[in-house]
Nucleic acid binder design. Sequence first.
DNA 1: AATGAATGAGCATTCATTCAT
DNA 2: AATGAATGAATGCTCATTCAT
Lengths: 213, 213, 213, 213
Amino acid sequence: MNLAQTRVGRKNDPDGTKENILQVATEEFVDAGFSGARVDTIAEKTKTSKRMLYYYFGSKEGLYLAVLERAYAKIRSLESRLDLENLEPEEAMRSLITSTFDHDDANPDFVQLVSIENIHRAEHLKSSDVLRRTNSGAIDIIAAILARGEASGAFRRKVDPVDLHQMISAACFFRVSNRHTFGAIFNRDLMNDELKARHRQMICDMILAYLRS
Amino acid sequence: MNLAQTRVGRKNDPDGTKENILQVATEEFVDAGFSGARVDTIAEKTKTSKRMLYYYFGSKEGLYLAVLERAYAKIRSLESRLDLENLEPEEAMRSLITSTFDHDDANPDFVQLVSIENIHRAEHLKSSDVLRRTNSGAIDIIAAILARGEASGAFRRKVDPVDLHQMISAACFFRVSNRHTFGAIFNRDLMNDELKARHRQMICDMILAYLRS
Amino acid sequence: MNLAQTRVGRKNDPDGTKENILQVATEEFVDAGFSGARVDTIAEKTKTSKRMLYYYFGSKEGLYLAVLERAYAKIRSLESRLDLENLEPEEAMRSLITSTFDHDDANPDFVQLVSIENIHRAEHLKSSDVLRRTNSGAIDIIAAILARGEASGAFRRKVDPVDLHQMISAACFFRVSNRHTFGAIFNRDLMNDELKARHRQMICDMILAYLRS
Amino acid sequence: MNLAQTRVGRKNDPDGTKENILQVATEEFVDAGFSGARVDTIAEKTKTSKRMLYYYFGSKEGLYLAVLERAYAKIRSLESRLDLENLEPEEAMRSLITSTFDHDDANPDFVQLVSIENIHRAEHLKSSDVLRRTNSGAIDIIAAILARGEASGAFRRKVDPVDLHQMISAACFFRVSNRHTFGAIFNRDLMNDELKARHRQMICDMILAYLRS
DNA sequence: AATGAATGAGCATTCATTCAT
DNA sequence: AATGAATGAATGCTCATTCAT
């Protein structure tokens, strides 16, 4: 009897089951929003049953929160890997912007999830301590570059690091989050490679022109 | 007797009924998204019954589309009122940016509706001829200013008008659309008056620094 | 003003309107049964509005009854045209059967309407004096033929005319009323011309074999 | 404790629940037709809730189909029990007719269901493989009797077995399916015992007179 | 750790009908 | 004779969730 539990190909793999549920749930929430997503649909696409979903995450909202936390955790881990201290301020800034741009471009699911969270007034995010402590790191990095740029005279403009983060985020995020309406109205595919390269350059140039001025 | 027919608040007033439904529905869709909004809730807040909602708009989706079209029609009418031809290129551009900024600031409902539409991949907008023809006007205005600025030497930078529109929109839109997550993470109220004034100035400076460079 | 009413192509044509409604309603009731038929659908296919339907027929049930009465009235008028008195009993009987067969074959709508009425336990028919007095004529004709046949010795079998009418009706009616299930199960198109001719002959032969025996 | 699990009337009894729903649903569909039947009404008369009805049968149509399949399955099982091979052809045929007659007489619900199915052009039956394969057995039995009768000289008439099945079915089915309209028009209760015996005899005599002739 | 059966409350939608003119 | 606007009550169906084992 006990041997059965250690059999190869066993079912009992809690972490694997949870991860599988989270992946499927992410897809569904991204696809249909919080209200639009269906617990039944998520369960069906899962390797396990609907009951396990409640066993591990308690409720639809609990599952959504877990999905959100997993998505934020992913970017936080990427952010810390940048090594900008050895670059000149201007180059460091370009590198940071490019990294933000590429992240949003590569992770439309994350962008969508953040949009969904805003639709619901960030009520889930606000209720989660884990989530609120997430992004503060980005600001420290920006602040450091700005300090060095101001000291070296490369940046004449004095700027609040959170304000600057907002502008960079806006340009990078909007391109992905609003690609459907913007694309439909101006008959453009914003994901097109040529356009993408042009916009990445343009955002860098815009931010740097501002900091220099 | 004939006067009675023109009395305000009379029963048989199709346009009034429709407008009343649209106002209530806008609130609900803004509040809860398309899937989250409840037809019953909308109907209850209306002067009429749920049945009339279906009488005039056919379905929840039909109602949502009407709400969306009405919202877009509103901004289109505002856009055309700007008179920028008598201003120097730099001043005209500042005026356009300010107008965009103030519009998004004053109409968080519209911003939310556009976000919701993007969550649903703009499928409703794409299916509506009325909606797709809406925003082209903005581009002509930008193009005209850019042409004058390039001619006068005020703008050294050659720029695609749609690209520029995207950057301006991003900065103005994101501030409103993402105020909840951004505000929660950085502990800031983006709607605060002081911050608002600073961001308006900042966006203008940023765009102009870019165009001059 | 008064002249307008006599204008060619005028709208005011009560009988025409009623007839138009009845035709459309017949189609719909035949198509979907009493419960399945939709007043809105009927109204839409009509030249007039839904309101007129209620103006003339009072209710869905009233309309259905009018449709039923019109259908029965049609067959009654056909029946009386047969002139069987100059034929030998056997020929007269064959002629009567053929006429019944051809009527049911040519009027699947009537057959369907009668089936629908039976589904609803003939409650409408029972409540209408007009309808209950309809079919008695058929019996007199049969009785007369039987009397002559018995007198001449052509029919050895003594038979109740209503019983015989039932057998003839059954064979002719079932072929039309049950053509869908019977056709599906035995993979036959009961409306096929060859089969039709064969069945008409077969029913005549069967009834006459019985009467002779 | 273990005994409790086998107690009759326990809660978790899928098959019992399904059967209970099917019985109630049969009654309702027979009573009101497909469109006229109400899911709510069916649910109320059930031991369980409306939700279970959808859990097991998916939709009103799914439930109707299950009802239809169950009804056909019942007759199929009865048909196979006849043992006609040891009877003389004439007696075998009488026995078959009597059996058909008695079945329709004893199962007006089945007759009604088939009528309803015809009103809807047998669309449900056509879409169900189970249902289409149901009745072929009857034909084999008839064909066998006819072959023996023709061989022995008892039946002079050469007849297609499906045609004959149609005539027998028509006489037996019509008596039940059209009892309401026919009864109302001729002021007869077709279910009356005396009439029933007379008609059973009459149908036998009629078919045999035909086969002999 | 896992599951098939069960559920109450709520969902978008449609029904036949009537009002006011 | 005719009609566009309006309606209450239902209708078929689905939701996230929990029970019993």
